[in-house]
Design a binder for these strands. Structure first.
Lengths: 223, 223
DNA sequence: GTCTATAGGCTGATAGAC
DNA sequence: GTCTATCAGCCTATAGAC
């Protein structure tokens, strides 16, 4: 095995530089927004020279775009893979929620970054086009599950878009504000312990599936 | 009636200046974040001179603080008033959701601004202290309703914090991303019409109350 | 209270050595 | 590929006339 060249300053692995920049930038963009995350801070956090942002990504905006693009791609791939079409619709929905949570834990800054992107409301027009193409596909995945459940009589005739929004909304909010909640609860007296992701997942799974099961079906399930 | 002095440039009503600045700033802070909303843009949008930000609020950060403080205050007051303790817990919960939505429609930029504040995760340390004091009070309101419902047997024994989070999360997400959704759906082919706030409210009311009703109770309600 | 002019700092990006 | 040095532009905030 040839040991990797551990030089500190020069001619390091370019992929490593790119990755370090993307990781540092994701955290800073998530917490401070595009304008609030300065190129200088990003580079310092990544342990990389500032000029590398321009060399590798053609500027701060290019770095941002690369992250958003890849983030949405990762998100979509995993969510699609999560839905096991052999399973009962209610279990597919549970799987979707669990998978979203796993991804959010693996990439903790992603939900906040995506939320910020959506809240910009179409200011970054060039970026939005790309984002717009991912969204219907995620919606389509959830919609498929819901329609299957409605068809086989296990779900009542809920509106798929609204159901999708309340589910994704709860998830995005929980994970985007996770660190805030931790700090806020720590400073409060008589505060409950910060809930774990697992706690929230099973709560949301329960509320969502109970919230949309068909009445007959719910009654039949009872013993 | 003495007509209001319609001078364009000089010695206008100072309260009007303050209000115009806060309104313009709320929109820009919501869409672009604190750093992304420049004092110049805020002043131009408000139709007011840039220096007025410093005169009236002691700087951009002071303007931001004033808005966050007042926003949380308004939010809390209205949400408290929404819960009619005479009503059944399920109806109190429905009332809470409806009131949050009304407020969000009256102040459409508020949810995004508050979400951004939370996502900063404790960067604005001076501000956060104030924000931290409001949150337990809002949580307390919801918790009271849930505990009453659990006590009288109409709700199952759900975790109040988790229930609060999934409800508030769905609401915040829906309203913070409303404009984005409108634009995104408009550019998509075969897209459903953007859902109205009223649609989302009744959907969330249904899913939440069905999701947490006690099983017996749910069965008893069925005809 | 409002305005103009300007100071002073920080930001993103580039040129050019290595 | 990486680094240092540097520039032009923009940003917040203030001084001072009105």
């Amino acid at each position: 095995m040839t040991a990797p060249p551990r030089r500190r300053t020069k001619a390091r692995d370019p992929q490593g530089t790119r990755r370090a920049l993307k990781e540092a930038a994701t955290t800073l963009f998530a917490r401070r927004g595009f304008a609030g995350a300065t190129a200088d801070r990003i580079a310092r956090k990544a342990g990389v020279n500032k000029a590398m942002i321009n060399y590798h990504f053609g500027g701060k905006r290019g770095l941002y775009s690369a992250i958003v693009r890849e983030s949405f791609g990762t998100l979509l791939d995993r969510l699609r893979g999560a839905v096991d079409e052999e399973a009962a619709p209610a279990d597919q929905l549970r799987g979707f929620i669990a998978t979203f949570a796993e991804m959010a834990q693996g990439l903790p800054d992603l939900p906040a970054m995506l939320l910020r992107e959506m809240m910009a409301g179409g200011e970054h027009r060039d970026l939005d086009r790309e984002v717009f193409e991912f969204l219907p596909q995620i919606l389509g995945t959830v919609r498929g599950v819901l329609e299957a459940g409605i068809r086989d009589g296990s779900f009542r005739a809920v509106n798929p878009l609204l159901t999708h929004l309340s589910m994704i909304g709860g998830l995005m909010f929980f994970f985007a504000t996770d660190e805030f909640r931790r700090r806020a609860l720590a400073e409060m007296k008589h505060a409950p312990a910060p809930p774990s992701a697992a706690d929230f997942v099973s709560h949301l799974q329960d509320v969502m599936t109970r919230g949309i099961v068909a009445e007959r079906h719910a009654a039949a399930r009872k013993r």
